[in-house]
Amino acid sequence: MNSFAANSFDLGTMDALAAGNTPLHRLDARAKLLVTLLFIVTVVSFEKYSVSALMPFVLYPVFLIAAGDLPAGYILKKALWVSPFALSVGIFNPLLDRQIVLHLGEFGISGGWLSLTSILIRFALTVSAALALVALTGVNAICEALMKWGVPRPFSVQLLFLNRFLSVLAGEAGRMTRARALRGFRKRKMGIGTFVQIAGHLLLRAVDRAERVYRAMLCRGFDGRIRLAGHSHIGGREVFFVTAWGALFALFRLTNLPVELGYLLTRIIE
């Protein structure tokens, strides 16, 4: 039940955030999507022991969150919460890779710990950037961007429809499971049989709903093609956004700024 409340909350919150009105919100979805993809690819392209070199990349999600007026705590919490899989796979690295690769005074740090740290940092970076992208843009605008990029229409239209009916179906499923929980006093968790019943009936209702939606579409002249009025355009701001971040990512990728900075600092201290 908690997952329902949480997920519905997320759906609503992400949409509400996307309805904001900062310059970053108004930027064309294609520019934001492109830069975020570039960001993710650059971040994961580092070799596996990279830790310090990844640090400058924090700037991008921080920029999106700050300039986009997004609630930082919420995005961070979500970023930390998801995918136990990454951690469960990464956690073996310290056990398996015990070669000391880094010395800090008396401490030796093994490659495994370093690569685990790297995995977690990559994870936080990619996830927070992706979340910030959606919170700034909204799924619908992202779908439109995909459509303009020539993603096959059956798929992009499918994304739009899925996004539209998510909350409707999630609401139905939530009410059904709540009704079960209220009557199932003894068992806290649902058995597989009950699940099949609930999911099956949810499915039947979904099929009926699809039929009604189809009729509603026919009534308004649907002929198999979904048309969207154009909202967006690429202007100077979009070009600047893409070029500036592209250049920064290239700089971060090709030089290890933190190490340079560290040298500079240690030299000054000495």
């Binding site: 619908n140 429809f161 009916f165 939606v213 308004r220 002249g221 649907f222």
Partner: peptide, 16 residues
């Protein structure tokens, strides 16, 4: 069924 209120009202108009 369309993503925004505007798109929904425009749906029938665009089809015709």
């Amino acid at each position: 069924f369309m993503p925004t209120v505007f798109d929904d009202v425009a749906f029938g108009l665009l089809n015709t």
